Amino acid sequence: MAPILVDNSKSSTAERETYVDNGFVHIKNPHLDMLSEDILYHFDLGTKTHDLPSMFGDVKFVCVGGSPNRMRSFALFIHNELGLDGDGNNIVDICAGTDRYSMYKVGPVLSISHGMGIPSISIMLHELIKLLHHAKCRDVTLIRIGTSGGIGIEPGTVVITDIAVDAFFRPQFEQIILDKVVVRNTQLHQELAKDLLECSREISSFPTIIGHTMCTYDFYEGQGRLDGALCSFSKEEKFEYLRKAYAAGVRNIEMESSVFAAMCHLCGLKAAVVCVTLLNRLEGDQICHSHGVLTEFQSRPQQLIATYIKKQLGVCT
């Protein structure tokens, strides 16, 4: 059995004080100092080929989500909400040279797709955190905007995550590094979660709550679905598991929050996860709402994040 290492360190006391004092994004890899150039391969960017401080140095908010189309839509939406010049037609995909991710910059806001699942968002986060570091960004807030399956709550409810938990409802992320299992903390920024909930009170058109989010490694069996190509459990076992999850404080399920929380926590980044629920898993496994209803649901986290960003920037509504 591989040894288990608990990696709860965020940084040394001195590093934490430095982060608080100057707000720069710090990384935890001494080997990067030995590189003559850092190539951010999946972004099609690099420290020698691009002037990263000039391109990204003013970024204060990074919003990430699974779908490239959804993140382009968010970029256009936040452009309008911030009242920036132009109609948004000049917003281009900075990562157009690669087919892995899409990235759009709108004033101080960066909108990036991360694909689906832990491996995809993990790769994106490694390069994003390095990008913010190389660009000398300060006081950056990261927010994952997504969709999820709800547990015991109405479809369309927006869940602000306080802690990301695994399939055993533990607030941790396990990763195999070399021949060791490394366990990392998945607590998100609590004050940010409270601030987002406060912003939701200005939007009365949909319910918003704070709760635990369960992160799984797949969409079907790992989430207790009965409608996949494979299923090794009964209907009764499924509902027993979901009821246990609800009792443990879990209010929604998705596939990215644990590694997102763990990496942001280790790098001292202020981060939040805000997902809308597309169904109540205690009532079924398949998403049955019309395209129009789902589109409106998916706009809800965007509305909440836009409200928060505008308040932080002092933009009048």
Rank of each mutant, 00 (worst) to 15 (best):
C288G: 11
V109I: 04
L269G: 00
D85P: 05
D51T: 04
I203P: 11
N252G: 10
L279Q: 08
Q187A: 05
C199G: 07
S120P: 00
A248S: 15
L110K: 00
E202W: 09
D285G: 11
G88N: 13
F77G: 14
A229D: 11
K244W: 06
E296P: 06
T147K: 05
M214P: 09
S12I: 10
V315Y: 14
C231E: 07
G86K: 11
C63N: 10
L84D: 10
E240G: 06
Y104M: 13
G268K: 03
D139S: 08
V181D: 09
H212P: 01
G115S: 03
Q302M: 13
L197W: 05
G152H: 14
D44C: 04
K105L: 06
L279E: 10
S73V: 04
Y308W: 09
L178P: 08
V293N: 09
A135F: 01
L266I: 10
E254Q: 07
K311A: 12
F206N: 07
F260Y: 02
I118Y: 03
G292K: 12
F173Y: 12
H79L: 06
S200T: 09
M124G: 00
A262K: 01
N22V: 02
A306M: 09
L132A: 03
S102G: 08
V183A: 03
V250H: 04
S204M: 14
I309E: 11
C137A: 09
K130I: 01
A261R: 00
V183G: 07
F239A: 02
E283V: 02
P207F: 02
M1G: 14
S73Q: 10
E81K: 14
N8T: 11
S9V: 05
R300L: 06
S122V: 00
L110H: 03
P68Q: 06
E256V: 02
L32V: 14
R72E: 13
L40M: 02
Q298S: 13
T307L: 05
F56W: 07
F43N: 00
A14N: 13
A2D: 06
R100L: 00
L40F: 00
M103D: 01
C275P: 05
T307Q: 15
D162P: 07
